[in-house]
Design a protein around this nucleic acid. Structure first.
Lengths: 119, 119
DNA sequence: GTTGACCTTCACGCCGGTGTCAACTTCTAC
DNA sequence: GTAGAAGTTGACACCGGCGTGAAGGTCAAC
C-alpha cells in the first residue's frame, strides 16, 4: 500500500510517516516511480512506534529496537542481547513515569473532589 | 530560603525555578537587594509543579491550577469550580497516558523476555 | 577585597511534528 | 488518449514548550 492508506489505517499523518522514515524507523520499498510501498507489517510497526514514542522512547532508541522486533503476527523474534540493559532502563523509566502519573492524577482527583460543586 | 537552598531541597535547578517564576508558577517575595525569598510551602509547591509537569500538564494550566491548591499541610482548599471540566479532561488524558505506558512496557518486557540470554 | 551565591537578559537547544510548494505519478471518466 | 483530479515526492523552514548557557553585574560573609 502507499503512504495515504497507511496513514488512514494507523491514524498517523503522512507527514509523520515520512518523518519516521527519515529517522530510520520505517524502510518502505519504492515503486519504479518513487512512491513508498508499505506492507501490512508496517501497520504493526507503526503502532509499535507510536506506543514506544508515547512511552517516551526517542526515535533513536526505537530505531535500534525495531530490528529486534520482527512482528510475526503475535510477537517478537530474535532479540538483540546487547540492547537488553538499555531496554531494562527504559522499562524502569516507564514504571517510574507511571508512578508519577498516578501521583499527579491523585492530586487532580483530590482537587476535583474538594471543589465545591458549583457556586 | 533563597533559590540555591530551594534547588537543593527540591532537586530542581535554579534555572528552572527562575523559569517557573517567569511562567507565573512561583511568586517568591524579594529581599531588599532583590534576592528571591522562598518558604517551606514553596518546596511543596515545586513538588506539585514537577508532578503535574511530569503528567504532561502545561505550565499555563498549572498556573491556573495552583491557586486552587493552597497546601495546608495535608491537602487542598477552596477550589475553582470553573476549572473542574478542564481538570477532568486532564485526568482522563493522564489515565490514557498510563494505559499507553503500560502497553509500551509490556512490549518492552516481551522483547526482553524473548531475547536469548547472551550469545 | 575576594569569593561564592545571586541577579537580569538574550539567545539557543532539543525533538517530535507540521506547513507549504512545485513537480511528478496514478487513477477516473469520457 | 486525453484531461483533470487525487495522490505522492523531496526540500526547506518553522513551531511549541521545557528548559539551558553564558555574559556581565550586584550582594554579602569572611
Amino acid at each position: 500500500m502507499r503512504i495515504g492508506e497507511l496513514a488512514r489505517r494507523t491514524g498517523v499523518s503522512e507527514r509523520s510517516l515520512r518523518y519516521y522514515e527519515e529517522q530510520g524507523l520505517l524502510a518502505p520499498t519504492r515503486s519504479a516511480s518513487g512512491y513508498r510501498q508499505f506492507t501490512d507489517e508496517h501497520v504493526t510497526t507503526v503502532r509499535g512506534i507510536r506506543s514506544l514514542l508515547a512511552a517516551g522512547l526517542s526515535t533513536a532508541i526505537i530505531g535500534e529496537l525495531l530490528p529486534c522486533m520482527v512482528d510475526t503476527g503475535a510477537g517478537l523474534a530474535p532479540g538483540c542481547p546487547e540492547l537488553v540493559p538499555e531496554l531494562e532502563r527504559e522499562r524502569d523509566r516507564i514504571t517510574a513515569a507511571i508512578d508519577e502519573l498516578v501521583t499527579a492524577r491523585a492530586l487532580l482527583e483530590q482537587v476535583i473532589a474538594n471543589t465545591p460543586a458549583a457556586v
